[in-house]
Deep mutational scan, measured.
Amino acid sequence: SDEELKKRIEELVRRGNKDEARKLAENANSDEARKWWEKLEQL
């Protein structure tokens, strides 16, 4: 689900694993996940 995906992306970003988070968001084929990633990346 998008919610689970967003949690995983956020967790990866928090751990400093941005590349992994980006790949996850891009491969998810989910606009919501991509937007979430872009938002987190700004922080």
Score class of each variant (00 low, 15 high):
residue 1 S to V: 14
residue 1 S to E: 09
residue 1 S to A: 11
residue 2 D to L: 15
residue 2 D to A: 11
residue 2 D to H: 11
residue 2 D to S: 11
residue 2 D to R: 08
residue 3 E to T: 10
residue 3 E to K: 10
residue 3 E to Q: 11
residue 3 E to L: 12
residue 3 E to G: 10
residue 4 E to T: 08
residue 4 E to G: 08
residue 4 E to L: 11
residue 4 E to Y: 07
residue 4 E to H: 09
residue 5 L to M: 08
residue 5 L to S: 02
residue 5 L to F: 07
residue 5 L to A: 02
residue 6 K to V: 10
residue 6 K to H: 08
residue 6 K to A: 07
residue 6 K to R: 10
residue 7 K to S: 10
residue 7 K to D: 07
residue 7 K to T: 08
residue 7 K to V: 06
residue 8 R to I: 12
residue 8 R to F: 09
residue 8 R to W: 09
residue 8 R to T: 10
residue 8 R to E: 06
residue 8 R to P: 01
residue 9 I to P: 01
residue 9 I to Y: 02
residue 9 I to M: 11
residue 9 I to K: 01
residue 10 E to Q: 06
residue 10 E to N: 05
residue 10 E to S: 04
residue 10 E to M: 11
residue 10 E to K: 05
residue 10 E to P: 02
residue 11 E to V: 00
residue 11 E to Q: 05
residue 11 E to A: 05
residue 11 E to R: 01
residue 11 E to L: 00
residue 12 L to R: 03
residue 12 L to M: 08
residue 12 L to C: 09
residue 12 L to W: 00
residue 12 L to K: 03
residue 13 V to R: 02
residue 13 V to E: 04
residue 13 V to L: 14
residue 13 V to Y: 13
residue 14 R to S: 11
residue 14 R to I: 11
residue 14 R to W: 00
residue 14 R to N: 10
residue 14 R to Q: 11
residue 14 R to D: 07
residue 14 R to A: 13
residue 15 R to T: 14
residue 15 R to C: 15
residue 15 R to K: 13
residue 15 R to I: 14
residue 16 G to F: 00
residue 16 G to D: 03
residue 16 G to W: 00
residue 17 N to K: 14
residue 17 N to E: 13
residue 17 N to T: 03
residue 18 K to C: 13
residue 18 K to D: 07
residue 18 K to A: 11
residue 18 K to Y: 15
residue 19 D to Y: 00
residue 19 D to A: 11
residue 19 D to K: 08
residue 19 D to S: 09
residue 19 D to M: 06
residue 19 D to W: 00
residue 19 D to I: 08
residue 20 E to R: 04
residue 20 E to V: 06
residue 20 E to G: 07
residue 21 A to E: 02
residue 21 A to R: 01
residue 21 A to F: 02
residue 21 A to W: 01
residue 22 R to K: 12
residue 22 R to V: 05
residue 22 R to D: 03
residue 22 R to G: 03
residue 22 R to W: 04
residue 23 K to C: 14
residue 23 K to I: 11
residue 23 K to H: 10
residue 23 K to Y: 03
residue 23 K to F: 05
residue 23 K to V: 10
residue 24 L to A: 04
residue 24 L to V: 09
residue 24 L to Y: 00
residue 25 A to L: 14
residue 25 A to D: 01
residue 25 A to Q: 03
residue 26 E to P: 02
residue 26 E to W: 00
residue 26 E to N: 04
residue 26 E to T: 04
residue 27 N to C: 11
residue 27 N to P: 02
residue 27 N to S: 14
residue 28 A to Y: 05
residue 28 A to G: 07
residue 28 A to T: 08
residue 28 A to F: 15
residue 29 N to H: 10
residue 29 N to Y: 08
residue 29 N to K: 12
residue 29 N to Q: 12
residue 29 N to S: 12
residue 29 N to P: 07
residue 29 N to G: 13
residue 30 S to M: 04
residue 30 S to A: 05
residue 30 S to P: 03
residue 30 S to Y: 06
residue 31 D to C: 10
residue 31 D to M: 05
residue 31 D to L: 05
residue 31 D to Q: 06
residue 32 E to K: 06
residue 32 E to Y: 06
residue 32 E to F: 07
residue 32 E to A: 11
residue 32 E to R: 05
residue 32 E to D: 11
residue 33 A to M: 15
residue 33 A to D: 10
residue 33 A to I: 15
residue 34 R to K: 14
residue 34 R to V: 12
residue 34 R to S: 09
residue 34 R to A: 06
residue 35 K to S: 12
residue 35 K to Q: 13
residue 35 K to V: 06
residue 35 K to D: 15
residue 35 K to N: 13
residue 35 K to R: 13
residue 35 K to A: 13
residue 36 W to I: 12
residue 36 W to Q: 06
residue 36 W to R: 03
residue 36 W to S: 04
residue 36 W to Y: 13
residue 36 W to T: 01
residue 37 W to K: 01
residue 37 W to Q: 06
residue 37 W to H: 02
residue 37 W to T: 00
residue 37 W to V: 12
residue 37 W to S: 00
residue 37 W to P: 09
residue 37 W to C: 08
residue 39 K to Y: 15
residue 39 K to F: 13
residue 39 K to L: 14
residue 39 K to T: 13
residue 39 K to D: 14
residue 39 K to P: 03
residue 39 K to M: 13
residue 39 K to R: 09
residue 40 L to V: 07
residue 40 L to Y: 10
residue 40 L to N: 01
residue 40 L to T: 04
residue 41 E to T: 15
residue 41 E to Y: 04
residue 41 E to Q: 15
residue 41 E to M: 15
residue 41 E to G: 07
residue 41 E to V: 15
residue 42 Q to F: 09
residue 42 Q to A: 12
residue 42 Q to L: 11
residue 42 Q to G: 12
residue 42 Q to D: 07
residue 42 Q to C: 09
residue 43 L to W: 08
residue 43 L to T: 11
residue 43 L to K: 07
residue 43 L to F: 09
residue 43 L to N: 08
residue 43 L to Y: 07
